[in-house]
Write a protein that binds this DNA or RNA. Structure first.
Lengths: 345, 345
DNA sequence: TTGTAGGCGTTATCAA
DNA sequence: TTGATAACGCCTACAA
């Protein structure tokens, strides 16, 4: 019951290996007679060529490596689902590596895959990588001729294809919407790190205020420690959000750079006499399950993760299958969309 | 800048390929002199053996294939994260295939991977597969000598390793807890399909009632269509939940076989004059983000997905690396745990 | 101590 | 029309 190979078929049918190979690939060199015989046999015993041997021969594996910082994470899974879709349509497999927001794991994961296992990468770097600004592993990979498509977390000084979210604009749209709805004192809950998307969203927030001639109140900006953004530290974060709401009773609009912080605020607001959306309108980022099933539903900025994933896969595979060299690198911006729900009704 | 191979090193250093190979693997056959020289060169130019060539030679790829019905799904991602962890620790890569609850995609995905790309599978079958009871692709894979570890959705009549959740017991524990809290009229929101875990959880619900001598009221069982469990059909489902709550005003306890239905019920209960948890106590399944960030927090039955994934990977890799043949198949039951939160306070 | 040869499974080129 | 051979990159038993 072992896997069938060309060799075994050849032995069984008493022909040469190359005859079998040619017959199966419908080469005109082979006579109808033997072709039929061989194909029948192969079909009967369900012959399938060995992928590894093909990979070695063709020097391409038809699989793409995806490295993400986290897997239990709505946005990243939507991106993967987009990648999977396009990859499968075009005959590619997807290997997933999880870096767990660790620079070292990112490097190890890439090294594991870069030695022949895959044809190209789609990846989002860890926050640690962004902080260290150490991109040698990425540069080396690119130099060895393995294409990389980066997504979401942008690394400016790296020459490769990129698919990014317009975080600044997304946040700006959200805040402008709050202003339109009549909010006068709009706050933001963001992350402390100074490198990642949280930062861009904060910029968008400031943009919108500036656009409308509203002066920035530093007290309205709550920076939560990113390290704490995991399920063990919910209580500590809630405490910080509580303090924030208490100290800024005049807040009537709030942008959060993710869903979790938004839900915390929605949960705590009534404690401080604020009903959502009547006295406090809230908008979050991500548009995941939390937003859809929250009570009231959370208005969010959708990043269209699935589209993003599809685009990233398309760009990578196009490049892999492009025989003209020197196709210029692409930087694709995925538009955000404001999904309105009860939290801003 | 192309990838370095043994051949190129050999040419460069004017020795034979096998000398290079041996030197790099610290064979005592090679003199210190040449060994050092070769190793220095390899290090300098960052030589790494080609995985594909190794796979072909060793007839093992050191990668495991994971097929899941959905990727944008909390439970499955926790399982993957467990698999990833153990796999990486033991030097394995993980290829992910998403079947999207489609039998055909499951088969295609498996075929893509079964031809040499991986050493073994960890998979959870689609609902469609369970319904059709068509397991030929699984049986063939096993017959070809490729081990499979199935998880979560159990297929009784298939001989292979399994890691399952004790859904019956989980549901029973939950309902018993509600009874202890004083609930007299306990309902359940479950799925219509008759094959999947929803069914087992319903059995657990009935178990608990029987155990306590409470007679079963069919009206208390709401079966929602599984097909509708996606974000497009939220409204329709909500309508059904509304009707259910309205028609059973005496309900004071509720078990839901997932988080989403539980949150819908929690959102709608106040509409029918029921405060949660005062007049209606709710318990869900999954213990994902929804439970943690709901308001009030949702008490849930945790399935310990990460543990499950770790165990599945351990079992598979142990089997792959076992040289004694005929290790008996294992069926491991992961215990559930009731996580208490505000919805049953 | 070093090199040669064969094989993992496949395909392509060339010879018979 | 069919078959032998070489190659993809690596490893290893055996020969020199």
């Amino acid at each position: 019951m072992q896997k069938l190979t060309l060799k075994k078929i050849a032995q069984e049918l008493e022909v040469s290996i190359s005859t079998v190979s040619k017959a199966l690939r419908d080469s005109p060199e082979i006579s109808d007679d033997t072709r039929q015989k061989i194909k029948a046999f192969a079909k009967l015993y369900n012959y399938k060529p060995n992928n590894i041997a093909l990979s070695l021969k063709n020097r391409k594996t038809k699989t793409i490596g995806v490295i993400i910082p986290e897997i239990v994470h709505y946005f990243f899974t939507t991106v993967i689902s987009g990648i999977e879709k396009v990859a499968n349509e075009r005959g590619y497999n997807v290997i997933i590596g999880v870096s767990n927001e660790s620079f070292t794991k990112e490097v190890i994961n890439m090294e594991m895959l870069a030695n022949g296992s895959i044809d190209g990468f789609i990846l989002s770097v860890t926050k640690e990588t962004q902080l260290k600004k150490d991109y040698h592993h990425l540069k080396e990979t690119i130099n060895q001729g393995m294409p990389i498509v980066m997504f979401d977390r942008e690394v400016k000084d790296l020459e490769c294809d990129k698919v990014v979210v317009d975080d600044v604009q997304g946040a700006r749209k959200a805040v402008l919407h709050l202003i339109e709805l009549g909010c006068k004192n709009i706050g933001i809950i963001t992350t402390r790190d100074h490198v990642s998307v949280g930062n861009l969203r904060t910029v968008g927030y400031m943009n919108a205020l500036a656009l409308k001639g509203i002066s920035l109140n530093e007290n309205y900006i709550l920076k939560l420690d990113d390290e704490l953004d995991n399920d063990e530290n919910i209580e500590q974060l809630q405490q910080e959000v509580s303090n924030y709401l208490q100290e800024n009773p005049e807040l009537d609009g709030l942008l959060s750079v993710n869903e979790k912080f938004a839900l915390m605020a929605m949960k705590l607001a009534p404690v401080f006499g604020k009903a959502v959306p009547e006295q406090l309108k809230v908008i979050g980022f991500t548009d995941g399950v939390l937003s859809k099933y929250a009570n009231p539903g959370l208005t969010t900025v959708s990043q269209h993760g699935r589209d993003l994933g599809e685009q990233a896969a398309r760009i990578l595979i196009d490049r892999l299958e492009e025989d003209e060299f020197e196709v210029p690198y692409e930087r694709l911006v995925v538009e955000t969309e404001l999904i309105e729900r009860g939290s801003t009704a």
